[in-house]
Simulated scan of single mutants.
Amino acid sequence: MRILVTGATGFLGGVTARELARRGHTVTGLGRDMGKGAALESDGVRFLRADLRNPADWLPALEDADAVLHAAARSTLWGRWDDFVADNIMVSREIARACAARGLRLVHISTPSVYNATGLSQDVPESAPIGPRFDSLYARSKFLAELEVTSAHPEATILRPRGIYGVGDTSIIPRLSRALRSGRLPRLVRGEVHTELTHVRNVAHAARLALEGSAPGIYNVTDGETVPIWATLDALADALGVARPKRYIPARLVENAARVLELAARLHPARPEPTLTASGVRLLTRPMTLDLTRVQARLGYAPVIHPHEGLAEVLRGVRP
């Protein structure tokens, strides 16, 4: 199969593009970073430099494709709404329209962050009512992107992987490592908080199943096992050689302080990312597990990496 992967110079896109190439597919990766593009080429992935906001950069590549994995996104808890609209909503809409017009299979990567403001936390199904409130601009933009994709391409597959991690992660582990190294991260809960994460290879596996099969609809994806957030933070602190968070400050107080920092950042002409965001605090203090019944039944998904393996691998790669 000839597969076009957007965001191929990113963490998830790069891992998945390489996995698809190893499986014998002809893969073309789109991205902006020429250095990472060269690395993709050396691993058997054809690379094209492209700005996804400019359809002229990527539309010709669809003529040589059977399917598209849209993994590119503005994935951050902070930013300008106009940028989220342009990169997450508008680009997704145009890619979905172009794929539908050409009869191409489309797998779109979304996020379970869309559930964060629903009040649900245990075995959340894909059918959970979402909106109109969201806990971040990112979550809102990704949900609106889903609506655009399903409207333009009803046969598309949408994956919602929770908390993507692994060796090479540029988001979760680096952010937590910076917070621990700063020595300013307090203990936000008295007990433990259990959540689910998804190893990047498990997301790549789910994406491959969707690309090789035919299963329209929305699917949750996780490692299928819960992870204790604060015990994991302690293990990360030990690997970094820094002190574990000890001083307890109620999460509600820290979240309120984060809102003040966010307001100050919004009023600043440069709108710099604050050192703390309310949605970031909630990720460390609120449990979340997802219902995997649909992805198991329709895609035949089962994790290829389990959390104890994946997190151990990540911690081994951490440098003090």
Rank of each mutant, 00 (worst) to 15 (best):
L283Q: 08
V27L: 07
A206F: 10
P129S: 06
E313Y: 07
A297I: 15
G119I: 14
I249H: 00
N220T: 11
L30H: 00
D43I: 13
G224L: 12
Y138D: 02
E262H: 08
S121M: 15
G44H: 05
T6I: 14
R316T: 07
R162V: 13
A73N: 06
F47W: 07
T157A: 00
E94S: 09
S279I: 15
D123I: 15
Y219E: 00
G213W: 12
R190V: 12
L144I: 10
E313G: 01
A235W: 14
V304Y: 07
G300R: 13
D169L: 01
Y138N: 01
S121K: 15
W230V: 02
R97C: 07
E273R: 07
D238E: 13
D43N: 09
P154M: 03
F11E: 02
N54T: 13
R80M: 10
H308R: 14
V45C: 06
A156C: 10
G241N: 11
L180P: 01
R18N: 11
P245A: 02
H194T: 05
V260C: 04
A215E: 02
R187E: 04
A302C: 13
R22V: 13
R201L: 15
N88G: 03
T16E: 02
A38Q: 15
V221Y: 02
L197Q: 01
R244I: 12
S141R: 00
I89H: 02
E155N: 07
F84S: 00
A86N: 07
L30E: 00
G29C: 05
A38R: 14
G163N: 03
G37L: 09
A231V: 14
R74Y: 12
L253F: 14
L292N: 01
R49W: 10
I164L: 06
R97H: 12
T76L: 06
G13W: 01
R294K: 11
P112T: 05
P245H: 05
V304N: 01
